[in-house]
Amino acid sequence: MSEPLLSIRGLRAKVEGEDGEILRGVDLDLERGEVHALMGPNGSGKSTLAKVIAGHPAYEVTAGEILFEGEDVLELEPDERSRAGIFLAFQYPAEVPGVSIANFLRTAVNSRLGEGEEMDVFGFQRTLTEKMEMLKMDPGFAARYLNDGFSGGEKKRNEILQMAVLRPALGVLDETDSGLDIDALKIVASGVNRLSEADEALGVLLITHYKRILNYIRPDRVHVMMAGRIAESGGASLADKLEAEGYDWLHRAVAAV
């Protein structure tokens, strides 16, 4: 197939009903099987981009397009995008009391299977157990209510568990590494790597603040977002430069434009 897995062109977006643009012309191509890191200072629009890709109703796209496997997804509802293969690991996952992870995930899995082809409880349980073992999660975890009272680290691990079970074509991971201690970070990173190994076409957009996770997940490309645009793109070495020099040189470069 010739078209990229994800192709974003001239994307502009703002909060629905408000003025200021948050995304001010984003361009980004991600091929199948590639891992791209998206870095950039706080407030530069990384999470907004992630949520716009997933179809969050709070944002209005004012210009540009998002093509996923060559199809325009902007008219699709969030659930349709999900079933099409887009997955967002949230920076701040919502809490849903009273709904167990197992029950929720089984519903999510079945939402993408046809009527009559739903996975039974036992089949699903096997898959879930296997993925939980991969992420070194306690078996009792699946019975807990979705993110309800979870620690920051538990929430992040739960996001990757969902990705592992739902097996998307594209995973957008929004600061999945922040709030994890080094052991948890390694587990999460190796989980993502195992998913990439199992599915060579899996594309990953890894949004992060820190270079730390890039020691465990090697990116094919690194992009830096500044004030709602991709200000710089490069190979893995760009991350090293950012680590060493911070964002100031980029600020100056952007200001100079």
């Binding site: 997933a54 179809g55 969050h56 109703p57 709070a58 509802e77 969030p78 659930d79 995008r81 999900s82 079933r83 997955f87 967002l88 949230f90 996952p93 919502a94 809490e95 849903v96 929720f104 995930l105 519903t107 999510a108 939402s111 993408r112 969902q162 739902l166």
Partner: peptide, 14 residues
Amino acid sequence: DEQLFYLMSRGLDE
């Protein structure tokens, strides 16, 4: 809205 979006982003319709 955040709860709804979260669940929908996993494939559940509204």
